[in-house]
Amino acid sequence: MMKTRDEEWAAWMRAGLAGDSVAYRRLLDALSPVLRQMVRNGLARAGASVGDADDVMQETLLAIHLKRHTWRADEPLGPWIAGIARYKLIDALRRRGKRAEVPIEPMIDVLAEAPQEQEVSIEEVTRLVDGLPGRQGEVVRAVAISQRSIREAASGMSLSEGAVRVLLHRRLKKLAAQYRMENA
């Protein structure tokens, strides 16, 4: 029997929450084009420019990550993701001074559709990372920009893996706050 997309994604999410970074990455890779589409639709419907759709999409990915403990492992993933995406879209629209009326149904529909192949716009927002001082900056540069694993980053910086994990986690939280500040 074929698994539905939601079941497949939920399985990746469960594995990710248990520490399987490969499965988690698979989920995020699958999610990002869908979220991008969702954000574009939402921005366009509200009459806002879709130029910064990627910023909103990344902020949504980050929110999904930081709030992943609020998903119940026995519930479908789609409505949970749609709830977060809608909240982040409304937030982004509000900051742009737009009236924020975003119905949830179209977002769940986008999640249920087959994923559309989107050209990934490679807009560099490296200043977010470049300005980072100290160890957190090093960790994000090592893990995010150079795409190294936690283990490699840890041995390269003579830190324990646990310490790198904690630094990375803190940095991701700060990044979420920074997104909000920059777009305020």
Binding site: G16, G19, A23, R68, R72, A144
Partner: peptide, 22 residues
Amino acid sequence: MKTDDLIHALSQDAAIREPAPD
């Protein structure tokens, strides 16, 4: 930041730490 880089960083932070909100 490229989305791909962000995703890589997030995936390295996959394991859950916080208890369920209820």
